Amino acid sequence: MKIPVLKTLLCCAILGLGGCASSQVDPSQYSGFLKDYSRLKPAESATGAPVMRWIDPDLKPGQYTRIYIEPSQFYPKPQPTAVISAQTLQSITRYFDTALRRELGKDLTLAQGPGPDTLVVRPAITAVSTSTEGLKPYEVIPIALVAAAVNTAAGGRDQNVEIATEAAFLDADSNRVLAQVVRKGAGKPLENDKTQLALEDVKPVLDGWATDMRMSFEKLRAAK
């Protein structure tokens, strides 16, 4: 089974939200979390993963010295299933928040809320499918955690796990959107369609997204 703060932070990280993305998110899979999808264009993240993104051409990265990371959320609100429990859903958003603070806090001052010279990160986890073919628009539950429901005659077949994100970066003073991104990645396959999804199955993707944000910011800072 097979499974790019600020312009680069926004370019790659949001933009680069890393992990093992299998392909670009199709417009039919957009969740509605972002206010305007019309400006998104195909691009590559810092790690070479395909993303859909937009960056304000008037963005001035140097004016931001602090970053406020809003609590990540599922959008739309998910419903637990036999494979994806409410506890797992909660652990995923909590861990994503921790990973973002851990990585971005290495280069930017973490703010407790919006304020002067502050960049706001607004992340969400979105979309879902129950097919081995990949993400499909909201087939079962409205989140990007996927457990394929296909079995073989020999028994349970490995179940694909995919996770997608949509994120916006805003100026804290004006609330102006500076950048947006949509992307997805692949988690650890589940043994079969009865196997419970666990945080460990998607941790590498969440870590990759957060690390990619930091790497993108560092590249931008080094170029200045």
Rank of each mutant, 00 (worst) to 15 (best):
G19Q: 01
R53Q: 15
V182D: 02
G115E: 14
K106S: 11
T93A: 08
T109S: 14
S129C: 11
I69F: 10
G115T: 02
T8Y: 12
I69C: 12
R157S: 13
L220Q: 13
G187H: 10
K2C: 00
S45C: 10
V128W: 10
L220C: 01
D36V: 06
D97H: 00
F33H: 03
L135G: 01
T211Y: 13
A167V: 15
D107M: 02
D171A: 07
P78F: 10
G18K: 11
E139Y: 09
P123I: 05
W54R: 04
P50A: 10
I69G: 02
A124C: 07
F217D: 02
L17R: 09
G48F: 13
V83H: 10
P71A: 05
W54H: 03
S91D: 15
P137N: 12
E166R: 04
T93V: 15
V177R: 08
V182I: 12
T118W: 09
P114V: 07
S38W: 04
I163G: 05
C12N: 12
N160Y: 03
Q159E: 13
K2Y: 03
A144H: 08
L104H: 01
A168R: 09
G187F: 09
V51K: 09
A149K: 14
A164S: 14
E139C: 00
R214Y: 07
P80R: 05
F96T: 06
A99D: 04
L197D: 06
F169A: 15
Q29V: 00
F169C: 12
C11S: 08
A124D: 03
A210Q: 07
I141P: 00
A49C: 00
K184L: 14
K194Y: 11
P61G: 03
C12A: 12
T65H: 15
I163Y: 09
M215P: 00
L104W: 04
A154G: 02
A147Q: 06
A49M: 11
L119E: 06
M1F: 11
D158H: 10
Q79W: 00
A210Y: 05
L104N: 03
P57S: 02
A127V: 12
A99K: 13
Q63F: 04
A82F: 12
T8P: 08
E191D: 13
D58A: 14
Q87N: 12
V205N: 06
S91Q: 14
S216L: 05
T65P: 01
L6I: 04
K2Q: 01
T118V: 05
E139M: 10
K136W: 10
P27T: 07
G115M: 02
G185P: 00
M1I: 08
T165S: 13
K194W: 08
P27H: 04
S45T: 13
D207G: 00
G19L: 06
I55Y: 04
Q180Y: 03
L206I: 15
I3P: 04
I92L: 08
Y95I: 01
E103H: 10
P137E: 12
L108I: 12
G187W: 11
P142I: 07
R221M: 11
